[in-house]
Amino acid sequence: MTEYKLVVVGAGGVGKSALTIQLIQNHFVDEYDPTIEDSYRKQVVIDGETCLLDILDTAGQEEYSAMRDQYMRTGEGFLCVFAINNTKSFEDIHHYREQIKRVKDSEDVPMVLVGNKCDLPSRTVDTKQAQDLARSYGIPFIETSAKTRQGVDDAFYTLVREIRKHKEKMSKDGKKKKKKSKTKCVIM
């Protein structure tokens, strides 16, 4: 069974824990209790493949930012979460993405942009803004509501699919490099 290491990042209060708990335990946590770091595991079937999701729910508070490099190193894919009623959390996505790329030393890291709290009427981040940002990053965008469960499975499952595509691409690139290195030079 394939294991996928997913990391949920975003500013404090955007609903990272609520999304994760909704996926794992099928219930909505409405009281806000700032996370330092929590880890969850769940076995699911995605596109006919049974897999184990190892999900790291991270601290959004700035005082825990020193811990970010460590979990970013171990993560295979990242859910970059903002709240649709919090423009600052949307603007912060850029910083999370840049930090992930720096730590992973790669421009090509599996990510999904997630606009959470889409059940709320007080939207300050337009869907088109988020779609445009995701398009500019070359990553999928999904709106979710941890409260109603809308888009929750889709967000995590899409990230797994992005990781699969990335692994497939990397193995193809690896095979191309191996083929090239088999060419021999004969000096007579």
Score class of each variant (00 low, 15 high):
Tyr4Arg: 15
Tyr4Asp: 02
Lys5Glu: 03
Leu6Thr: 04
Leu6Arg: 01
Val7Tyr: 02
Val7His: 05
Val7Trp: 04
Val7Ile: 06
Val8His: 01
Val9Asp: 02
Val9Gly: 03
Val9Leu: 15
Gly10Val: 05
Gly10Cys: 10
Gly10Pro: 07
Ala11Glu: 15
Ala11Asp: 13
Gly12Ser: 03
Gly12Phe: 01
Gly12Ala: 01
Gly13Thr: 04
Val14Asp: 15
Lys16Gln: 15
Lys16Glu: 04
Lys16Arg: 15
Ser17Gly: 01
Ser17Thr: 01
Ala18Trp: 00
Leu19Ala: 10
Leu19Lys: 11
Leu19Pro: 00
Thr20His: 00
Ile21Asn: 09
Ile21Leu: 15
Leu23Val: 11
Leu23Trp: 06
Ile24Tyr: 00
Ile24Met: 05
Gln25Phe: 03
His27Asp: 09
His27Ile: 10
His27Val: 10
His27Pro: 00
Val29Met: 03
Asp30Arg: 05
Asp30Thr: 09
Asp30Leu: 10
Asp30Met: 09
Asp30Ile: 03
Glu31Leu: 11
Tyr32Met: 09
Tyr32Arg: 00
Tyr32Ala: 05
Tyr32Lys: 00
Asp33His: 01
Asp33Leu: 01
Asp33Gly: 13
Pro34Lys: 14
Pro34His: 14
Pro34Trp: 15
Thr35Asn: 15
Thr35Ile: 15
Ile36Gly: 00
Glu37Asp: 07
Ser39Met: 02
Ser39His: 03
Tyr40Asn: 00
Arg41Ile: 00
Lys42Gly: 02
Lys42Ser: 04
Val44Leu: 12
Val44Arg: 05
Val45Trp: 04
Asp47Ile: 00
Gly48Gln: 08
Thr50Cys: 07
Thr50Asn: 07
Thr50Trp: 06
Thr50Ala: 09
Cys51Phe: 08
Cys51Val: 11
Leu53Asp: 01
Leu53Pro: 14
Asp54Asn: 04
Asp54Met: 00
Ile55Thr: 15
Ile55His: 12
Ile55Met: 13
Leu56His: 06
Asp57Ser: 00
Asp57Phe: 00
Thr58Leu: 03
Ala59Thr: 13
Ala59Pro: 01
Ala59Lys: 00
Gly60Trp: 13
Gln61Glu: 11
Glu62Gly: 11
Glu62Ala: 09
Glu62Asp: 11
Glu63Pro: 05
Glu63Asp: 05
Ser65Gly: 05
Ala66Met: 10
Ala66Ser: 11
Met67Thr: 03
Arg68Tyr: 04
Asp69Asn: 11
Asp69Ile: 01
Gln70Cys: 07
Gln70Ile: 07
Tyr71Ser: 15
Tyr71Ala: 15
Met72Asn: 09
Met72Gly: 02
Arg73Val: 09
Thr74Ile: 05
Thr74Trp: 04
Thr74Lys: 11
Thr74Met: 07
Gly75Gln: 02
Gly75Glu: 02
Gly75Ala: 15
Gly77Asn: 04
Gly77Tyr: 01
Gly77Asp: 00
Gly77Cys: 04
Phe78Gly: 00
Phe78Met: 14
Leu79Cys: 10
Cys80Tyr: 04
Cys80Leu: 14
Val81Lys: 01
Val81Asp: 04
Phe82Tyr: 11
Phe82Ile: 10
Ala83Met: 04
Ala83Thr: 13
Thr87Asn: 09
Thr87Trp: 05
Lys88Glu: 14
Lys88Cys: 12
Ser89Gly: 11
Phe90Gly: 09
Asp92Ala: 06
Asp92Asn: 11
Ile93Ala: 11
Ile93Phe: 13
His94Gly: 10
His94Arg: 13
His95Tyr: 08
Tyr96Trp: 15
Tyr96His: 05
Arg97His: 10
Glu98Thr: 03
Gln99Gly: 04
Ile100Leu: 10
Ile100Asn: 02
Ile100Thr: 03
Val103Cys: 14
Val103Ile: 14
Val103Pro: 06
Lys104Gln: 13
Asp105Thr: 09
Ser106Trp: 10
Ser106Leu: 10
Ser106Cys: 09
Glu107Leu: 12
Glu107Cys: 12
Asp108Lys: 14
Pro110Val: 03
Pro110Ala: 03
Pro110Glu: 03
Met111Leu: 07
Leu113Gly: 01
Val114Ser: 01
Val114Met: 12
Gly115Trp: 08
Asn116Ala: 13
Lys117Leu: 15
Lys117Glu: 13
Lys117Tyr: 13
Cys118Leu: 08
Cys118Trp: 08
Asp119Phe: 14
Leu120Phe: 14
Pro121Val: 11
Ser122Arg: 07
Thr124Glu: 13
Val125Thr: 11
Val125Gly: 11
Val125Glu: 11
Val125Arg: 08
Asp126Lys: 10
Asp126Glu: 07
Thr127Arg: 06
Lys128Met: 07
Gln129Met: 09
Ala130Lys: 06
Gln131His: 07
Gln131Met: 11
Gln131Gly: 11
Leu133Glu: 04
Ala134Cys: 10
Arg135Gly: 08
Arg135Val: 06
Ser136Gly: 10
Ser136Ala: 12
Tyr137Pro: 11
Tyr137Arg: 05
Tyr137Met: 10
Tyr137Ala: 06
Gly138His: 04
Ile139Leu: 14
Phe141Cys: 03
Ile142Asn: 05
Ile142Lys: 02
Ile142Val: 12
Ser145Tyr: 12
Arg149His: 05
Arg149Val: 06
Gly151Lys: 00
Asp153Leu: 09
Asp153Gln: 10
Asp153His: 08
Asp153Thr: 08
Ala155Cys: 11
Ala155Pro: 09
Phe156Met: 14
Tyr157Asn: 09
Thr158Asp: 06
Thr158Pro: 07
Thr158His: 12
Thr158Trp: 12
Leu159Ser: 01
Leu159Met: 13
Leu159Glu: 04
Val160Ile: 13
Arg161Val: 04
Arg161Gln: 13
Glu162Pro: 02
Lys165His: 09
Lys167Thr: 11
Lys167Ser: 09
Glu168Trp: 03
Glu168Tyr: 14
Lys169Asn: 14
Met170Gly: 12
Lys172Cys: 14
Lys172Tyr: 11
Asp173Asn: 14
Gly174Ile: 10
Gly174Trp: 02
Lys175Ile: 13
Lys175Leu: 11
Lys177Glu: 10
Lys178Ile: 08
Lys178Met: 05
Lys179Asn: 07
Ser181Ala: 08
Ser181Arg: 10
Ser181Thr: 08
Lys182Gln: 10
Lys182Gly: 11
Lys182Val: 03
Thr183Val: 08
Lys184Ala: 07
Cys185Glu: 13
Cys185Pro: 10
Ile187Val: 08
Met188Pro: 10
